[in-house]
């Protein structure tokens, strides 16, 4: 007789893990959950939407130059003055903006976490030096730094990305350092040290994982910041350049065509605003879920 493994035994009263509680709290936040859904839809639309059209955002259609937005196939939202499809350009621009946003936040967050964890764990003179550097960089006007860096790196997507990451890792570093400082004094870290664990392994295996919840909360705020920086630089003509589309340069060209045709501005502007709104709501929801005291 075989034992039916799938039959659940009389389950002992199970404790709810902190993470599960946090996820549950987040899921109860309707605004945040709605934002997750909307954002997912936008991401899917940006990455898969362009395949539904027989052309790319850089193809000019000379039969439809400056076509109006009449929701008629194939140019649903019309075309710009070169006959390029507006909707496809906005979706392709979204790919760039969203990719830079998420990767940038990940990179800036990663650098900040490591830097902050090392400084906080090391303490003493190392910490003082590392934090003095952060303090000096904090005193810089952010715009100047990001503009100069993207020029130094020769323009283009990678330069833009690097410049943004370089200017945005400071806040996570400061936050993680505070967390790491208090962790470094905990008994389990002392135990690890007594057991002969090296400093770098303690940082990676004990300090960093214990900072994760703080990092998630503040990291989620980095995504809209990166997207904003990217579109801001592209708007000024420093970031992503034509013919490649990004929300920033689409808004910029929409602005110059504003008096004749407002939709060139409205479509990318609305998309950017919706994405930023969703990301802000999600970040708020995460903060409430992970840190309920701080309302």
């Amino acid at each position: 007789m075989s034992v039916d493994l799938s039959t659940p035994e009389a389950a002992p009263p199970r404790g709810v893990s902190t993470l599960r509680l946090q996820v549950r709290r987040f899921a109860a936040n309707r605004l945040a959950m709605a934002s997750v859904v909307v954002l997912t839809l936008i991401v899917l639309a940006c990455f898969f939407g362009p395949y539904a059209f027989p052309f790319t955002g850089e193809d000019a259609d000379f039969d439809f130059i400056s076509a109006p937005a009449e929701l008629s196939w194939p140019h649903l939202f019309g075309t710009d003055e070169y006959g390029r499809d507006l909707l496809v350009r906005v979706l392709e621009g979204g790919q760039v903006s969203l990719t830079i946003g998420f990767l940038g936040a990940l990179a800036a967050g990663g650098i900040g976490v490591i830097y902050g964890a090392v400084a906080g764990y090391a303490g003493g003179r190392v910490d003082g030096l590392m934090m003095r550097l952060v303090e000096i960089l904090y005193g810089f006007p952010y715009v100047i730094l990001v503009i100069l860096l993207s020029l130094l790196l020769g323009g283009g997507n990678m330069a833009l990305f690097a410049a943004i990451v370089f200017t945005l890792w400071l806040t996570p570093a400061v936050i993680v350092r505070a967390q790491a400082q208090s962790l470094a004094r905990k008994e389990f870290v002392e135990a690890a040290r007594a057991g002969g664990m090296t400093g770098s392994r303690i940082v990676l295996q004990h300090i960093v994982p214990n900072c994760i919840s703080v990092v998630i909360v503040y990291g989620s705020l980095l995504v809209p910041e990166v997207i904003l920086s990217e579109s801001f630089l592209s708007f000024l003509g420093i970031g992503i350049k034509e013919p490649q589309a990004s929300w920033g340069n689409l808004i910029s060209s929409g602005t110059s065509a504003m008096d004749s045709d407002l939709r060139l501005l409205l479509l990318p502007g609305t998309m950017l605003a919706i994405v930023l709104l969703c990301l802000n709501f999600i970040a708020d929801g995460l903060r409430d879920a992970f840190d309920p005291n701080d309302r």
Binding site: L228, G248, G269, L272, A273
Partner: peptide, 13 residues
């Protein structure tokens, strides 16, 4: 959430 360079042109319009 809505950046200056979107609100500005809209206000102009």
């Amino acid at each position: 959430a809505v950046p200056i360079f979107v609100i500005g042109p809209l206000a102009q319009a």
